[in-house]
């Protein structure tokens, strides 16, 4: 599915140069559920951003399928991203002015999908995360767990091959966290590749492989028995 070769990300400001990722090599296969762990500032988010094609690496290769996308411009990346990758964020990132339904539909607006099919797929996604009854509510009217379920619906409605989750349970209580993890597991069971950044060891246990980052380098990889 994807392969990172000697991937490095350096942030430069006027005075300092920070190496967020240092010669990272990771190989993720289709259908895997990978958790990335590590302390704050270890480079987890940078890695996820690059994997999600929201950012470019400073050097190294990023093979997505059989393309090295490391040097691609925003336009090309946007195209690949749109077809293949879904995102779930810690802070949900729903648009306040749009209803639940519209938030989910947003992910389909940029694909060439006729309105009727869009509607069906949004309903389907909302049903899947048990939030269909709130489709005309605004995000502020929902609890945190509900908002994250909407975010998941939005991430999966375009049927991406890979789902990237950045601490999806970080803002949730344990009951809601469990629920979200179960949903991700379920999605993974249906064949979606999932890469999740998390601080929570219990939640990382849902993944089949755990990659530990420290100071921008991969320090350990643990495979969990299936």
């Amino acid at each position: 599915m994807l392969k990172l070769v000697d991937l490095t990300k350096v942030y430069r400001t006027e005075e300092v140069e920070t190496t967020a990722l240092n010669q990272v090599n990771i190989h993720i296969k289709q259908g895997e559920f990978v958790a990335i762990m590590g302390p704050s500032g270890c480079g987890k988010s940078s890695l996820l951003n690059i994997v999600g094609m929201l950012d470019n690496p400073s050097s190294g290769q990023y093979w997505f399928g059989d393309e090295d996308v490391a040097g691609y411009g925003e336009r090309k990346l946007a195209d690949i991203r749109k077809k293949n990758i879904g995102f779930i964020f810690q802070s949900f990132n729903l648009i306040d002015e749009l209803t639940v339904f519209e938030n989910v539909e947003l992910a389909l607006l940029y694909h060439d999908i006729p309105a009727r099919e869009r509607k069906e797929r949004v309903k389907e996604a909302l049903a899947k995360v048990n939030i269909a009854h709130r489709e005309s509510h605004l995000p502020q009217q929902l609890s945190g767990g509900q908002q994250q379920r909407v975010a998941i619906a939005r991430a999966v409605v375009s049927r991406p091959r890979m789902l990237l989750a950045d601490e999806p349970t970080g803002n949730l209580d344990s009951a809601n966290g469990e629920e979200v993890m179960n949903m991700l597991t379920e999605l993974n069971g249906e064949g979606t590749t999932i890469v999740m950044v998390t601080h929570s060891m219990p939640h990382a246990q849902y993944a089949r492989r755990i990659i530990n980052l420290f100071d921008g380098q991969v320090v350990a990889e643990n495979l969990r028995a299936a």
Binding site: L54, A78, D79, F87, L109, Y110
Partner: peptide
């Protein structure tokens, strides 16, 4: 940013 993440082009 979100819209772009969701696939919106320039």
């Amino acid at each position: 940013g979100l819209r772009k993440v969701l696939g919106a082009g320039v």
